[in-house]
């Protein structure tokens, strides 16, 4: 009885820790494989980069504008109008769009669209034994499949972060205009509060989000089992783990950024 309860509590935890350990090992192998010659993954890198770009840009555009206009835009504008400080909306958008919403929406949309596609693709190849065939033919799947996805997702999420910042700001401008606010004060408070730390922090955070998405989604795809149902399960798990991992990383990164750059806490 005690053993059964202990097993029910302990075994899933052990399984989870083993998976996390495997993903850490995969990260290490991916970085080593990316750096160590030869570099056969150039073509696949470009193709993955363009693939993600093509799939993600439009959904990201719509999501960023809608969420920025809807959440910090309308909600914050209502609140600031009550306080008679609608001109602070620009300053608030530094916090909302650059530091948080830009990277988080980018990672969510990239994970939901490109990450799931990667897991489904690799999962299907695993089920069809293509990955085994590659290994038997002397092709290292980490170097040839994981590395290009890892690098392309890092690059593309960093670029998309800038894209999301622009369209996030557009949502803020829209909110200011709808509330009858001239744009001069919006820009004034926006630029008064923006620092280069905010910008590189946002891009770096997004880049690491991309790395997490690539590792989790590749791992889940390459370890899929149980036929079509198993691939579906792997996709679902990949998305859940990516959101959890990126949410946790976001908290740690934000704390570290604020601790090492306390000046960005000061509202000007």
């Amino acid at each position: 009885m005690v053993r059964s309860i202990a097993d029910r509590a302990f075994l899933p935890t052990r399984g989870l820790l083993e998976e996390v350990g495997d993903m850490v090992v995969l990260t290490g192998r991916t970085i080593l494989s990316a750096l160590r010659p030869p570099y056969p993954y150039g073509g696949e890198l470009v193709s993955q980069f363009l693939f993600v770009l093509r799939l993600v840009w439009f959904p990201l555009l719509i999501t960023t504008v809608a969420i920025s206009y809807g959440a910090p835009g309308i909600q914050a504008a209502n609140f600031l109008r009550l306080a008679g400080a609608l001109d602070r909306l620009g300053g608030f958008f530094v916090l909302a769009a650059i530091r948080e919403i830009g990277p988080l929406i980018t990672s969510t949309v990239v994970a939901g669209i490109a990450g799931t596609a990667i897991t489904a693709d690799l999962g299907a190849r695993k089920i069809r034994e293509e990955l085994d065939a590659l290994q038997v033919l002397g092709v290292d799947p980490v170097k040839n499949l994981v590395v290009p996805r890892f690098l392309s997702l890092m690059m593309v999420t960093a670029l998309f972060d800038l894209f999301a910042l622009l369209f996030g700001l557009f949502g803020g401008i829209l909110a200011a205009v709808v509330n009858g606010q001239p744009l001069g004060p919006f820009w004034a408070t926006f630029f008064a509060n923006t620092t280069t730390v905010d910008l590189w922090g946002s891009v770096l955070k997004s880049m690491i989000f991309g790395a997490v998405i690539a590792i989790v989604c590749c791992y889940k795809g390459m370890t899929a089992s149980g036929g079509a149902e198993g691939v579906g399960r792997a996709v679902n798990q990949a998305v859940v783990i990516t959101f959890l991992a990126n949410g946790t990383f976001n908290y740690i990164f934000t704390q570290m950024l604020l601790a090492t750059h306390p000046n960005i806490l000061v509202i000007k």
């Binding site: 069809r128 293509e130 085994d132 065939a133 290994q135 038997v136 002397g138 290292d140």
Partner: peptide, 19 residues
Amino acid sequence: LFEMRKKFGVLFQDGALFG
């Protein structure tokens, strides 16, 4: 191991052709 695998040809269950 990669070198040793060159001794092998493997026919997987469904052919495992690259899609």
